[in-house]
């Protein structure tokens, strides 16, 4: 199964990319994929990062082939 993952803000920075295609066997929920993507990245507060699947905020969905996942950290600047 293939899904596209989009990174924003400090997640994109830590991952050193803004997008990647992840391939995996079996089933994963959106939050399981998030854990996989963030694994090894130096981000202090991973819990605060929200997940959108196909442009809908949602972390419980089981992913399907071709889904687009976005990892959204909160921003504070102004």
């Amino acid at each position: 199964m293939k899904v596209t993952v989009k990174y924003f803000g400090l997640v994109a920075e830590a991952a050193e990319k803004s997008e990647e295609v992840m391939e995996f066997d079996g089933t994963l929920t959106a939050s399981e994929l998030k854990a996989k993507c963030l694994n090894g990245l130096s981000i202090t507060d991973k819990e605060s990062i929200q997940i959108a699947v196909n442009q809908n905020l949602d972390d419980k969905t089981t992913l399907k082939d071709g889904d687009e996942v976005a990892l959204l950290p909160p921003f504070a600047g102004g």
């Binding site: 400090l10 507060d45 819990e47 605060s48 929200q50 905020l57 909160p74 504070a76």
Partner: peptide
């Protein structure tokens, strides 16, 4: 509803 909890990553401009 988007960000239920605040975070320590309080990074300003």
């Amino acid at each position: 509803c988007v960000f239920p909890k605040s975070t320590r990553e309080n990074i300003s401009c």
